[in-house]
Design a protein around this nucleic acid. Structure first.
Lengths: 119, 119
DNA sequence: CAGTATCCCGCGTGATACTG
DNA sequence: CAGTATCACGCGGGATACTG
């Protein structure tokens, strides 16, 4: 790889798109609950400020992962959910989860006190 | 999911482990070139300072992804490479790459000027 | 040559109040 | 209720010089 190209390399871009602090949680939520009204989404994530939640949603919207649907004019009623592209993430996220499961299993046995005693 | 548990949820942890600015590049390098001496690795990444490269390596070492091997005492001669756990990442990284390829393809057609004109 | 010590800066994240 | 405006802060990342 040419290192000038690195900034645009796909894996790097992947992390740039998805590594917002709350994005994995938001995606997880959409996969399990489906589309949701903004206020509901926000209520279910008590530790995140509205501003930040909106930012994360807007970023993913700009990246084509999330879709925003405005229903009424007043009072505002906005729903967020996954785009088709967003939905296509499911297998990949499951892959990540299963890799991590293995990883954490290995780590706990590596750091197992029983093994430490053998030293 | 309980949101107290979120900080330790697997996908989130995954991003915490791998989203250092240079980690994807370092991993990519190890997959293509194998183990490498520190100075060589550093020379091939001109835009990164030694301090930061060392930090990223040490973090991944602590996370069990990277292995550090010291050969001589003086002058120091240190090699870095992938652990078995690190090597087990290959399929997942390929999955990410292929998903991203698709993603970027979709994006470019979505934003294609030809389609814009149809509006 | 590998690694550390300092100092520095910008950005992602956060709290809070405000607007339409 | 959805979204914006301010202000603030910690931390990841960076430049540079130094040490063993």
């Amino acid at each position: 790889m040419n290192y000038k190209e690195f900034e645009n390399c796909s894996v790097n871009l992947f992390f740039r798109i998805f590594s917002g602090k709350w994005k994995p949680l938001i995606l997880h939520h959409f996969f399990y609950t489906g589309d949701e009204r903004f206020i509901e989404l926000w209520r279910k994530m008590p530790k995140i400020s509205k501003k930040v939640l909106l930012e994360q949603l807007k970023e993913m919207e700009n990246d084509g992962i999330v879709v925003r649907k405005q229903v009424n004019t007043f009072p505002p009623e906005v729903y967020y959910g996954l785009s088709e592209t967003g939905k296509s993430l499911e297998q990949l996220l499951l892959h990540i989860e299963s890799w991590m499961e293995n990883y954490q299993l290995q780590r706990t046995t590596e750091l197992d006190p029983m093994k430490e005693k053998q030293k």
